[in-house]
């Protein structure tokens, strides 16, 4: 089992690393989105400082959303998923490797770079740690919630727009708690962090399970 897990994980990572579009797309999109905020505010420093945290969160959301489209697409299209199913490779391994890789290449770089962008958007220094922690819990949740919806829309013609439309309502609680948690971090209350952790711990059990179910249905 672990052998299979490592095998699939390494293949997945390889796929991301050697396919440069796939690996840098999310981060590049994040950078471009970040660029929009200062430009669209007309150079108002105060406003920028106020919305720095939420803009980083919004950009993280969109970067995640955009890269969700390619999550299962290729394996579904060329029939690899079908072969996995026929050869009785447990789907939870596939789903978890996909999840880990997706987070590693979309969420993780954003988390690492977030302090830099906070300063870049003239946010205050005391929020750095709060933002770091909240993104650390929030971005895996984005990937987790996106997974079943990405699996749902497999095989539809206009996949991208539908995906965006369906996913954003489900991302809302995460972004609400995420932004609030940063604001309350400096005042020493962690209730939103606990809430996010609770959602994460429930989600990491149920959402992959639902994803497996949906993927199996989608093979027909």
């Amino acid at each position: 089992m672990t052998r299979l897990f490592i095998l699939l994980l390494s293949r997945e990572v390889k796929g991301y690393l050697f396919n440069t579009n796939k690996s840098w797309f999310a981060l590049g999109f994040f950078l471009l989105c970040i660029l929009i905020f200062p430009l669209s505010l007309g150079g108002s420093e105060d406003l920028l400082k106020k919305i720095s945290i939420s803009s980083i969160w919004i950009c993280a959301l969109f970067a995640n959303l955009i890269s969700l489209e390619s999550l299962f697409k290729e394996d579904y299209k060329n029939g690899t998923l079908l072969q996995y199913h026929i050869n009785r490779i447990p789907f939870f391994i596939i789903v978890f490797t996909k999840f880990i890789c997706h987070w590693l290449f979309t969420g993780f770089p954003i988390i690492i770079l977030s302090p830099l962008f906070l300063i870049f958007l003239s946010g205050s220094y005391e929020n750095i740690l709060g933002l770091f922690y909240s993104l650390l819990i929030g971005t895996p949740l984005f990937s987790l919630i996106g997974m079943p919806i990405s699996a749902l829309t497999l095989g539809s013609a206009a996949r991208g727009p539908i995906l965006v439309f369906l996913t954003i309502p489900f991302f809302l609680p995460i972004i609400i708690f995420g932004v609030l948690s940063v604001n309350s971090f400096s005042s020493g209350s962690f209730s939103e962090y606990y809430l996010l952790c609770a959602i994460l711990s429930i989600g990491i059990i149920f959402l992959p399970y639902i994803t497996i179910k949906i993927l199996k249905e989608s093979l027909e």
Binding site: P148, L152, T153, F170
Partner: peptide, 9 residues
């Protein structure tokens, strides 16, 4: 199934 699962989620 897509519809049913989406309404479930």
């Amino acid at each position: 199934y897509t519809f049913a699962y989406l309404s479930l989620v």
